[in-house]
């Protein structure tokens, strides 16, 4: 318990420092946040147009799809405001840039992940919570469940990035592979899971675990179902466990890039 509190404090300290660093370029930071917010609004607008013409899609209506966009965006945003380096893991490994992180007394993986913040992730996070409140107008239990599920999805995205990024230990430079895989995950996560059948459905439970974003959380919120919420959380936990295992297993194969680096 003490260790957990200790790491939560570390995460809070890093988030504060990373935010301060981002605010050094205030104009750039705000413009990226606003642009991402608008970007997500444009996608929601597309769905509003779509459902304006076709009212229901395999049992899903506009509220479900807006909820999906909100939960996916805020989960992704939360993940990368706190653990922005998850997106850079493949690059750091390929260039042999883990050395600097190995010198610290903390566990290697959480320390790397916390080392950077994505500015646009703020736009995602803010969008998710605000649009959910305004568009879906949830009551308190729904909103509480929504917030809990965004945390679960944030873990899922971080775990998935660790998993795909860590393949670099085995495949050499797999930056492009990790990026494409992540794009596939994000894309599948933002469309109703009920569209897919057969082999693709199996894929969505395994290699691209998008059902834990685009299916179980939505059903959990629609029916206020704890069992669906727990399946979503279990899915996230499994992805994080797989990512952590692959990272530390691959770390044995790590070779330093002998780079001289300073961290400000």
């Amino acid at each position: 318990m003490r260790t957990l509190v200790n790491y939560l404090k570390l995460a809070a300290a890093y988030t504060r420092l990373n935010l301060d660093a981002q605010l050094e370029y205030r104009g750039a930071f705000y413009s990226q946040v606003v642009a991402m917010f608008i970007n997500n609004c444009i996608w929601v607008w597309f769905w509003v147009l779509f459902f304006g013409r076709f009212k229901v899609l395999r049992g899903w209506d506009i509220n479900d799809v807006v909820t999906l966009w909100c939960i996916a965006a805020s989960g992704f945003g939360l993940a990368h405001t706190v653990c922005g380096n998850a997106l850079q893991l493949a690059v750091l490994i390929a260039r042999g840039q883990l050395d600097v992180w190995m010198l610290y007394p903390r566990a290697l993986l959480p320390h790397i992940l916390l080392g950077r913040m994505s500015a646009t992730a703020w736009g995602d996070a803010i969008f998710g919570y605000i649009v959910y409140l305004i568009f879906v107008k949830p009551d308190l239990p729904h909103f509480a469940l929504f917030v809990a599920l965004t945390v679960s999805i944030a873990f899922l995205f971080v775990g998935f990035s660790i998993f795909t990024g860590s393949l670099t230990f085995f495949l050499g430079n797999s930056e492009s592979l990790a990026e494409q895989w992540r794009y596939a995950m994000i894309t599948f996560s933002t469309y109703p899971a009920t569209l897919f059948e057969g082999a693709v459905k199996i894929l969505l439970y395994t290699l691209i675990p998008a059902v834990f974003v685009s299916y179980y959380p939505i059903i959990a919120l629609r029916q206020l179902s704890l069992s669906h919420a727990l399946i979503a959380v279990a899915g996230s936990a499994a992805v994080v466990a797989a990512g952590v295992f692959v990272f530390y297993y691959g770390l044995r194969r790590y070779e330093s890039g002998n780079l001289m680096e300073m961290r400000g």
Binding site: Y25, S31, Q32, A35, M36, I38, N39, I42, W45
Partner: peptide, 18 residues
Amino acid sequence: WLEDTNGLVLIYSRMTMI
């Protein structure tokens, strides 16, 4: 004139898409 143009690029590309 601007400190960062990434935001404009993002919005332009989404406008083109939609």
